[in-house]
């Protein structure tokens, strides 16, 4: 083979000692060798138009984001929908999720919900009907409802946070679960905090055509369209 070039061979060159982790953080300065993942609830306000759900879900698959659930539904504003995503990622991964979702043109605003956000999920459980009294007792315990009771099966509905649903499902196992359908989490920010930045709950209920942001916070949401907390990519906190 030809084409070789002059210069010291690799082993004769100085090589630095530093290293980065797979997330591209310098290991000594900030990054751990192996950062941990956490669960985050990300809410996206979107234009309710054909293909928007495909764009969001396609983004998750092609960027290999770990998604636990995705729910979607209309809002008080005509033509807008809210997508609630539960993701399991490193801090850097969650930042990426928010920014990449925010880049999709039909997405109006994206925010990560704080820990105290109001979250709920619904499960439908179809269990064997051999012990109807016991089934009803457990349903009451979880503040659920019986939706259908037949000779062979009973179907109940339970709502609540993920932990409660998990517990309820465990409790119903004794009867024999025939079928199960869970919606995945949906969530809103607590109190007056908007669920996505710039969203104003009161205003959006009134105006049906306008985007919910006021003029003042529109710039805010365009540039900082990512989270409810400080959103511009932060310089490293080395100290």
């Amino acid at each position: 083979m030809t084409g070789g070039l002059p210069g010291p061979a690799p082993e004769d060159r100085p090589q630095p000692d530093g290293r980065r982790n797979p997330q591209g953080e310098r290991i000594d300065a900030r990054g751990k060798a192996d950062p941990e993942t956490r669960t985050a609830v990300v809410s996206a306000l979107v234009e309710h138009e054909p293909g928007v759900l495909a764009k969001v879900s396609g983004l998750f698959s092609r960027r290999q984001f770990n998604i636990e659930s995705l729910t979607v539904g209309p809002t008080t504003v005509d033509g807008h929908a809210r997508i609630t995503l539960v993701v399991e990622e490193t801090d850097a991964g969650i930042e990426q999720v928010k920014k990449q979702v925010g880049k999709l043109v039909p997405v109006i605003a994206v925010g990560e919900l704080a820990d105290d956000a109001v979250r709920a999920e619904l499960v439908l459980l179809k269990v064997r009907g051999d012990e109807p009294d016991k089934v009803h007792a457990i349903t009451r315990m979880y503040e659920g409802q019986t939706l259908d009771a037949g000779p062979r099966t009973i179907t109940v509905q339970i709502t609540g946070d993920q932990q409660k649903i998990d517990d309820a499902v465990d409790a119903f196992r004794q009867f024999g679960i025939v079928e199960i359908a869970r919606t995945g989490q949906t969530a809103l920010a607590r109190g007056d905090t908007p669920t996505t930045p710039g969203e104003s709950p009161a205003a959006s209920a009134e105006s049906t055509a306008e985007r919910p942001e006021s003029e003042a916070n529109r710039t805010e949401s365009a540039t900082n369209r990512t989270t409810t907390e400080a959103t511009r990519p932060q310089p490293t906190d080395n100290d």
Binding site: G31, A92, Q96, P233
Partner: peptide, 24 residues
């Protein structure tokens, strides 16, 4: 591997996507 990275980009999603930005 030993550099502080200052990353300027018009697309915020590029910041710290592959290489961590010490200043964005």
């Amino acid at each position: 591997p030993e550099a502080e990275v200052v990353h300027a980009d018009i697309d915020p999603a590029e910041i710290s996507k592959n290489v961590h930005a010490d200043v964005a």
